[in-house]
Design a binder for these strands. Structure first.
Lengths: 228, 228
DNA sequence: TGAATAGTGTCTTTCAGACAATATGCC
DNA sequence: GGCATATTGTCTGAAAGACACTATTCA
């Protein structure tokens, strides 16, 4: 999938790069870490999948641009966004020089499938081990984001963004196991999480199936420090 | 120091931001954490101090731009650079929209004073507690960089960039103490550093003054993983 | 009562932090 | 010998990791 070129496009016509934002939206669903992608419907990389994103407008901050693009392209609102890294190799976009500021976001599994796209392009979640053909350097960006996710989850209450308001301890443990790609010990995991002092019991229980019901927990405050 | 404006400058003439790089060059010198600044000699913020940096050219990567700018403005070569964060508020530069990708670099104290500027502007090190009036949002960028420095030093062999080839344990300890802004215990510090397995004795000793000479140490490999 | 998941405690090892005495060289 | 810095080890408390049994519900 070599880069395409277009003779009608004069790269010298512009003396400054374009600036875009790209958003890595992660979730854990059905035991897999997934990222949201959008299928491109125009050159370049027509038909390839890409991260939601687009040009930064002159009167909005980078954070605002990321929030806006995520909302426009996926319908997601109120998602916590964090700047990840800026990619700016001179050849990463065949149209012109494009510098992209990547962002990183997390949503609970329940949101999967709840987005509404404002245009005809397809929007879909992909397991990070089963990615389709990706446009631009988006494979690299996703790799970078996954790496960051793995690092951060160990030192922050990052899982907050991936869980619904109320959840079972086993739900939370599964999320950690999927991201870290290893089994964790139930007792040690509970000890660690509780020692952070961020969780509280709700008193509610989930009765489902032929086994002891699970207590539901929630994070103590809405204004948590989600990332370090 | 409100933002200045220039009626001759038509902000609407451009539909895309300019992209710059700014380099935070840190060192520890005489018991202080210092950052290198350059005095501006033109509008805007004429006479104010600013981080070395400038526009990214169309055919160079962001990393290359940072390296080039550092070299052009300070004469420093072969310095390890790491991308820090991208600042892109719509009002941060009164000329036009400017998105700046900040970089982070470290040099040993011995390099202080050894730079040569290729133009007339003044280049000078400032202790981070004694900063002059800064241009743009550079105070914020420096604050961000110092924060990152403090965080990283605890989990990486970051001090490598701040030390000369051979150094005493007490040199290294002083650097940690300055950055973390607290006294450390000699014995515990030595234990921790040695347990990383990155240091080795050189066999050389420094004889200077009326006391026991200190052994010189060095980092084991040139191709260290300097940052996590 | 068997199947399935929830929930709990102890022991060991490891790491961080507090803490003080001896070693070496110069004057 | 006195001074200045270098070098070294032990103890304690906290946290991480290994490890197995009991509890609850439903079929």
């Amino acid at each position: 999938m070599g880069l395409q070129t277009d003779k009608n496009y004069n790269i010298e016509e512009f003396d400054r790069p374009s600036v875009t934002v790209d958003v890595l939206l992660f979730t854990v669903h059905q035991g897999e870490l997934k990222v949201l992608l959008i299928q491109r419907n125009s050159w370049p990389f027509e038909g390839f999948w890409a991260l939601p994103g687009g040009f930064v407008q002159m009167d909005e901050s980078l954070d605002e641009a990321a929030k806006r693009k995520l909302s426009e392209e996926t319908g997601m609102l109120g998602v916590y966004l964090e700047q990840l890294y800026t990619f700016g190799g001179p050849k990463r976009d065949p149209r012109t020089r494009v510098v992209t500021v990547s962002y990183f976001a997390l949503v609970p599994s329940a949101e999967v499938g709840s987005f509404e796209s404002s245009d005809i392009r397809r929007v879909q979640w992909f397991g990070i081990r089963k990615l389709p053909e990706l446009a631009f350097d988006h494979a690299e960006i996703i790799g970078f984001g996954v790496e960051r996710l793995r690092n951060k989850i160990q030192y922050s209450s990052l899982a907050y963004g991936l869980l619904p308001d109320r959840f079972r301890f086993s739900d939370m443990q599964k999320i950690y196991e999927v991201i870290l790609d290893k089994k964790l010990d139930k007792r040690n995991f509970r000890k660690q999480m509780m020692s952070l002092g961020l969780l509280e019991e709700t008193g509610e229980k989930v009765v489902e199936g032929a086994h002891r019901p699970a207590m539901l927990y929630k994070f103590k405050k809405r204004d948590l420090v989600i990332f370090d």
